[in-house]
């Protein structure tokens, strides 16, 4: 079945393999360490808040060391947001200038146009006059929108 799809199928297999090994596999392999840590936290919580319940916890054998291959030792500093070594000031989601949004919109529209123009440009000679006129109509429609944005002073940065 993969042979029917050719190289794209191979690419899909490689992509899935890559995602599994870099993301999912370390996450699943960290489960023994995580469970050990959660169990330790749970027993400490019980000891401090409900000491009389401690006798009901069965002596669960914790995972042997060789299964705790991927370490999991979170501390408050380790889990904090990275700000080049300093303590974070403010949140990460800040208000930014709305003009970035305009530029991104115009860029997306024109980028889609360019993506359609690439194969057209490659086959231009074979398409003849009809192909030329069709693409020019397409460009004209998109450029109207662009000129509208231009006249409405969207592209100015003040």
């Amino acid at each position: 079945m993969l042979a029917d799809y050719g190289y794209i199928g191979l690419f899909l297999v490689v992509a899935i393999f890559f995602a599994v090994t870099t993301l999912l596999l370390p996450f699943f392999l960290s489960f023994p360490s995580r469970l050990v840590l959660y169990f330790r936290r749970f027993t400490r919580y019980l000891e401090t808040h409900y000491p009389f319940l401690v006798r009901f916890i069965p002596p669960l054998p914790k995972f042997p060391r060789f299964m705790q291959v991927v370490p999991y030792n979170p501390t408050p500093v380790k889990s904090s947001t990275f700000e080049c070594g300093m303590e974070t000031i403010g949140t990460a989601w800040v208000r930014f200038n709305f003009r970035y949004y305009f530029y991104a919109l115009v860029f997306i529209a024109l980028d889609i146009l360019v993506v359609f123009l690439y194969p057209w440009a490659v086959e231009l000679r074979g398409l003849g006059l009809f192909g030329l006129i069709a693409a020019l109509v397409f460009i004209f429609i998109i450029v109207i929108g662009y000129i509208y944005a231009w006249r409405k002073k969207v592209l100015e940065w003040k």
Partner: peptide, 14 residues
């Protein structure tokens, strides 16, 4: 020094 220590603390083990 506090910044370097913080960066060291934020590195994942090992």
């Amino acid at each position: 020094a506090p910044q370097v220590k913080r960066i060291y603390d934020q590195m994942a083990e090992p």
